[in-house]
Each structure stands twice: as C-alpha cells, then as structure tokens.
Design a protein around this nucleic acid. Structure first.
Lengths: 127, 127
DNA sequence: GTATAGCCTAGAGTGCGCTCTAAAGCAAGT
DNA sequence: ACTTGCTTTAGAGCGCACTCTAGGCTATAC
C-alpha cells in the first residue's frame, strides 16, 4: 500500500475512512445508496480500492450532507454526473435550488435563535 | 367556545392545531413526551382545553425545535420549568449551551455552503 | 334514535440516515 | 497449520420525530 506522500491511490476502505472521516460502514452504505458509483476493486482480493478522485467526491458529498441535502437528492446528482456533459444545466439547477433552500433555512434558524436569545436575556435579568 | 376576540381560552385540540401550526397528533405526542404538562381537561367531556399560556409555550418549543434542539432536551427544560424558581440558573445554562451549539452549526453550514457555491460557479463557467 | 363529526387512548407504522451483525473469504505473521 | 485482523455481503437494528390506526366515547343536528 502506498500512503507515503503524493497522490493517494489504492486506499483500503479503512484508510478511506480515516481520510474522509466517514466510517467504513457509511462508505459502503453510500455506495449501495448510489452516491458513489465506480469504486474499483483490487484484482487479487476483490477489496474496494479508492483513489484521490473518490476522496474529492466524498468531500463534496459531505458538503451536501452538512448543508442538509437528503441522500436521494445526492443520488440524483450522482446520476446526472454519470450521464455526462449534457446534464450540466440540470446539475447547476439542482445545486442552485439547494443553495436557495439552505439560505432560506439559515434565515429561519437565525430568526428562531433570536427568540431563544431574548429568553436568555430575560433569564439574565432575574439573576 | 369563545374565539371571538381577546384572550384565547378553552381551545380544543383542533383549534390549537390551527393556531400553532402543529397537528393534533403532534400536540398529543409532545404532551406524552413531557414537553407540555399541565394541559387541563374540560370537566364535562374530558377533552383537552388549551389557553393562551399553552400557545406561548408551544411557540417557544417551536423555536427550540426549529433551531435543532432534540425533544429530550426540551423535556429537560420543561422539567426545570416545573421545578420552580430555583432552576433559573440551570435553564439559563441550558439555553446558552444550545445557542452556542446552534451558532457553531450555523458557521459550519455557511462554510460548507461556500463549497457548493464554488461548484455552482464552476458549472456557470461551462455554460 | 341515529348519523356525523370531533375527541380520547394505546400502540403500530413510517422515513431517514446511519450502524451493526453474522457468516464467510483473504492476508500476513509465527 | 493456525491465529489475527482485515475485507466481503445481505440484511437486521436503531434512534429520532413524528404520523397514523383502531376502537371507543361525546356532542350536536335531524
């Protein structure tokens, strides 16, 4: 196994788990869920073999998840990606719609957090 | 049933659902979960009877939920509330800890959203 | 009285996103 | 050869927050 420096290649699922911060279970789950096609296998033993492209992709998936995109939408995005260049417009629309929803939700959370802050202020006057 | 104007009183669960935007199912669930003690009953028929205090309380619960506080933490807060004045400090700490977590999460979401925005920017150059 | 509509309870079901288990295969060390 | 520790799969289980169902009671209109 490489892992000295340079471009990561032929990573086992545990190494991939370390690098991405996801568990091996979750990596397999994402693959089954269609978020991660194209995972090559080691020819000798049939183990999954990840490379830098997978790392970058997982990193982006984590951004989508962290901003609340559901698994099925990420699968949809993945499918578009696999269908090639003529889906760029669809992918763009999908991401833009997502961004808009997230921004709306950020505004709502901030608003509701202000109510919490007001309550905190009230409690502080009692101290 | 009153409902003309002035202070809401003796609301049925359906009226309460309308006012709060929660379903009757959810109102019962919140009560069972310990988020909502003290729901009086109509002496004749045993139906739940809500008043303005309940409305305000549900409104605050919605702020906590909207900012991601789990049900069990809201129950904890409810318990403190029921234990009276000497829990003010604990309630304050609970809300402050919550606010801090939410603010942290807002920062993280914003960061990850920037990655999405960068991807959008990239796609737009392809157009 | 009867129909309809709203309320009650206990408990089952749902959807999501993991997370774990069992049984089996492969790899490296002693 | 045996042990240890990784990998594989299919499928079960979990925690959360609802959401709904079944069966029964109550209230009002006709």
């Amino acid at each position: 196994m490489v892992m000295q420096q340079g471009v990561p290649e032929n990573l086992t699922i545990q190494q991939m788990a370390q690098v991405t911060g996801l568990s091996a279970h979750t990596l397999r789950y994402y693959e089954r869920a269609g978020l991660l096609d194209l995972v090559d296998r080691n020819q000798q033993n049939g183990y999954r073999s990840y490379n830098e492209r997978h790392i970058n992709w997982i990193h982006f998936i984590k951004c989508l998840r962290a901003t609340g995109m559901p698994i099925r939408d990420i699968r949809r995005y993945t499918e578009l990606l696999q269908q090639g260049e003529n889906t760029v417009r669809d992918r763009l629309n999908l991401l833009k719609a997502h961004r808009q929803r997230v921004e709306q939700q950020l505004r709502e959370v901030k608003e509701h957090l202000e109510a919490v802050t007001r309550k905190i202020g009230y409690y502080e006057t009692l101290d």
